[in-house]
Design a protein around this nucleic acid. Structure first.
Lengths: 355, 355
DNA sequence: TTTAGCACTCAATATGCGGGAGTGCTAACA
DNA sequence: TGTTAGCACTCCCGCATATTGAGTGCTAAA
């Protein structure tokens, strides 16, 4: 791909796509000749555009309208024509400032990232919360709430604090809970949920043979509810930016799109279907195989810590999106997010020094 | 008000409003005569409607269209004409089931309430999270995260768990943190933030004279960040129900409305401006004094525990909303929410039994 | 190979014309 | 005196019909 087009065709295709991205109106040969000085007349451009249409890079909404890019056109643009746009100083500065404030826990990092993504692109940001399966327990605490319930609180080393109410036998006292907490802490802290060996579990059961039933419940919650809970969760930023896009002035379209975005599981799938494990992925129109998102494109990337992928983030907009801008932003923010998370974990590496 | 209208005018006004609520179309005299058997001809109704218009209860979009209710008309309808609509068995059953599952903490109660409100009315639910100022500490824990940071976790008796990262001097060890936690727990648990006396604080400072600086920080966070954090927060349910209302098919209108609803502080003000301290309040159109919400009405009520108001909840929809239905739902849900919260607190009353 | 010129196409906008729903008024009626 | 039938009138709405204008494709000349 790419070599099939001579230089002039490339420049014309590029001009058409740029103009359409800016104006959202079909662009005609005269416009190209006027606005983008190619040194040829509109008639020449007309011929070239006819060729480009035949090759499938452009299409015409109807006879006597200008041309708009086809999906294949966008694809070619993204792969071969587009040139990278660096972030401005102001933008980088904004990002720096936002990250410097409140970076206490993973939730906030995700939030800030989503905000920035949507703000910088004026599209909708989709950020998958990091899989915390591999984060390790820092502290586990059972707090008695009333006669038959206790609150299980788990602090993870990445700053996430999870909690869940569990039922406990009426016979269990506050001292019992404290004892259980102590053993759980001694045995589990420093371990990730996955790395916990069966032998360890057995040890716990032996030490707390008295509290079998409660222990069953606690370990179950630790295993399933807490860990899986925040996995697969999605943060959406700038959802209403959609309203500013001319392609979604139609309320019916809006309804279907927002309806889709409401379904977290669907978004999870969308984010999970990320082929390239490194770098930015662009899915254009029909390449997103959800009915109702044909007019959308998605630019996304995987972020991670120390080469380990733990989630992905992306920007969703109309197929007529400013790819060059969006790709730069997504790329930059992926780095920033990974960096912020590593920062969050970094200090943890030397926890032995202290605890 | 009310006595100025004779029975027939009342019945006609009622019929017009009901019909308009159902159809969203201006309603004419013939429609009234046909659909609502009043035993008089359309001509008579025509005369009456002209009177009602002159009195300000109805208005005409243009000559030769039917009539639609004016704000004053809706107000009169709500105050004098409307009859209460009981919830169906299925609806009450749904509510029961939803509340029976997951009622572990205040957040979930609020979430379920919002969901139900929007689902039952097909409008948008606005639920102010309960002010937790008066909830008391159950457990306070400082967990070391890395050399210079610790996680402060506070479990409140209403099931809310709050946490915040704080900086601590590098010199402080895990044992120190445990010691601080122990003292804080011993002194503060059972107390609400407001009820903490200065003498108590002094006691703490004396016992932990060593950790002055850290203690300053911890108490500051407990006082301000944690408590005020979840106050004033608003849960919105069924936001996209707006899209189904014919009065918001216009994207511009949608944009302004959604823009307003995005601002939490504005919503907080809206919910706070609740005059009657008991019972359901209805604000119609211009009675909500925000530009951009002229076409909306709001039905709201204050909920509380043991007569103590701790928040409010409401339903936002077009002025042409099904007041009778919405008022019933809001009234019912207010009771349910208060009840659910009291349940959450009830067991706490007898905590002495156990701890 | 490029370009000027021209006929042609077709959405978008305006213009004009019933049809219909609904009103107000009048006159007859109980 | 209140009610109703009848009728002229109003005005939105939908529809068909010009008109416009941006843009194309094609042809022929440079």
């Amino acid at each position: 791909m790419g070599f099939e087009l001579d230089t002039r065709k490339k420049r014309i295709l590029q001009a058409v796509i740029r103009d359409y991205i800016n104006t959202a109106e079909p662009v005609g040969s005269r416009t190209i000749a006027r606005k983008y000085g190619l040194g040829v007349s509109s008639a020449t451009i007309r011929n070239e555009m006819a060729d480009l249409e035949e090759m499938g890079f452009l299409e015409q909404p109807h006879t006597s309208a200008g041309r708009i890019p086809s999906e294949r056109g966008y694809r070619y643009y993204v792969d071969c024509l587009m040139q990278r746009e660096e972030l401005s100083f102001d933008e980088e500065d904004l990002i720096q400032r936002e990250y410097r404030s409140k970076i206490d826990d993973v939730g906030q990092v995700v939030h800030v990232t989503g905000q920035l993504l949507s703000q910088l692109t004026s599209y909708t940001a989709v950020v998958q919360k990091p899989k915390i399966g591999f984060s390790s327990f820092k502290n586990i605490q059972l707090v008695g709430m009333d006669k038959e319930r206790a609150m299980l609180v788990a602090v993870m080393d990445n700053g996430i604090v999870q909690h869940r109410m569990i039922d406990v036998p009426v016979s269990i006292t506050g001292n019992d809970l404290a004892a259980i907490s102590a053993v759980l802490n001694a045995k589990l802290s420093g371990f990730t949920m996955e790395s916990i060996k069966n032998t360890l579990i057995k040890e716990i059961y032996i030490e707390l043979a008295h509290y079998r039933r409660t222990l069953d419940l606690v370990l179950d919650v630790l295993r399933y509810s807490l860990t899986s809970d925040s996995e697969d969760k999605i943060y959406l930023g700038g959802l209403f930016n959609i309203l500013n896009q001319p392609e979604f002035q139609n309320v019916e379209k809006l309804k279907t799109l927002l309806g889709l975005l409401e379904q977290e599981d669907l978004l999870s799938n969308l984010m999970a279907a990320n082929p390239s494990s490194s770098g930015v992925t662009v899915r254009i129109g029909g390449e997103i195989s959800y009915r109702g998102m044909q007019d959308c494109s998605m630019v996304m990337a995987i972020y991670g810590v120390k080469g380990q992928p733990i989630g992905s983030l992306g920007v969703l907009g109309p197929t007529r999106m400013d790819y060059s801008k969006v790709i730069s932003v997504v790329e930059y923010m992926t780095k920033k997010l990974s960096f912020a998370l590593e920062n969050l974990f970094k200090d943890i590496a030397d926890k032995e020094v202290k605890f």
